[in-house]
Design a protein around this nucleic acid. Structure first.
Length: 270
DNA sequence: AAAACTACCTGAGTGC
DNA sequence: TGCACTCAGGTAGTTT
């Protein structure tokens, strides 16, 4: 479900509820996530949360002696609420705070993850191979151009590859390519530098705008208060097969690239 | 090394 | 109503 804007929206939403609070208990209702939730997540009990950060699509709940890493997978969402709100079927993990509120991880498909890590986060094997953050200064045209060199994969797969750049998922890959006028199947190694420059700019701006709109709710993404995001109204191509292109009034097409739906305008994107 | 493919899981929607 | 089938926002791990 969530790409970078949805994870960042969640981070900003939960941060004021968690920062400075003491963890009184954790409850694992169903440990069968992408990897089994280990018993060591209990170590956060009694600790004070110092911050909530994000690396790629991982949310990092930071304490002085370790970090609780959360991933929302395809269908995960977090909710901060009072304990008397009825639990949902797929509320698999709960972190209770001494102030009486609790954080609930809801994830029907269970592709998400809950991991306790002590030590530097960049040492973790799920983090240490990742490319730059798309909104950071080290993701720039020179870098993307170099990374594309001699690559025989499609540009869409390339920008969705976390070793190249993190956080660009299936929605925003299609959107950024539309904004850049680049056909999603074009080989990464066969795109001129000026066009990649444009692509870098459009990746940054589409993610930035989506964050400002609270993310995209297609089916079930909700923020920490249970509210949807509003970027869906601004999607130019994603999930708009057979609709009119907002730029040329042609017809949006759906194709499949490595088993993922891909939307583009055949007139505007070459 | 890079590219292609598999696997994990539930639920909503469609067509018969 | 029920069954069979497709599709969905991710990504580690395996195979080619």
């Amino acid at each position: 479900m969530p790409e970078l804007p949805e994870v960042e929206t969640t981070r900003r939403g939960i941060l004021p509820h968690l920062r400075g609070e003491l963890v009184s208990n954790v409850i694992v209702r169903n440990p069968a996530m992408r990897w089994p939730i280990e018993k060591n997540v209990n170590r956060i009990t009694g600790m004070t949360i110092t911050g909530v950060s994000r690396r790629a699509k991982y949310l990092l709940i930071e304490c002085s002696a370790g970090t609780l890493m959360l991933h929302l997978g395809m269908s995960g969402s977090l909710r901060v609420c009072q304990p008397d709100i009825p639990l949902k079927k797929h509320d698999h993990f709960i972190m209770q705070l001494k102030n009486g509120t609790e954080l609930r991880l809801h994830d029907p498909r269970r592709f998400g993850a809950v991991i306790w890590h002590e030590g530097a986060i960049n040492d973790h094997s799920l983090i240490n191979h990742l490319g730059p953050e798309p909104l950071d200064h080290d993701f720039h045209a020179d870098y993307l151009h170099r990374s594309c060199r001699d690559r025989k994969t499609s540009i869409k797969q390339h920008i969705m590859n976390g070793k190249v750049v993190v956080g660009v998922g299936n929605i925003y890959a299609s959107e950024a390519l539309f904004r850049s006028g680049i056909h999603p199947k074009r080989l990464a190694g066969r795109i001129s530098k000026p066009r990649l420059e444009r692509l870098v700019d459009e990746i940054k701006s589409v993610l930035d705008e989506a964050i400002n709109q609270g993310g995209t709710t297609l089916r079930d993404f909700l923020n920490e208060s249970g509210q949807p995001g509003y970027f869906k109204q601004r999607l130019a191509v994603y999930d708009r097969e057979k609709d009119r292109c907002i730029s040329c009034a042609g017809t949006i097409r759906r194709i499949v690239i490595s088993n993922r739906s891909t939307f583009y305008c055949p007139t505007c994107q070459k």
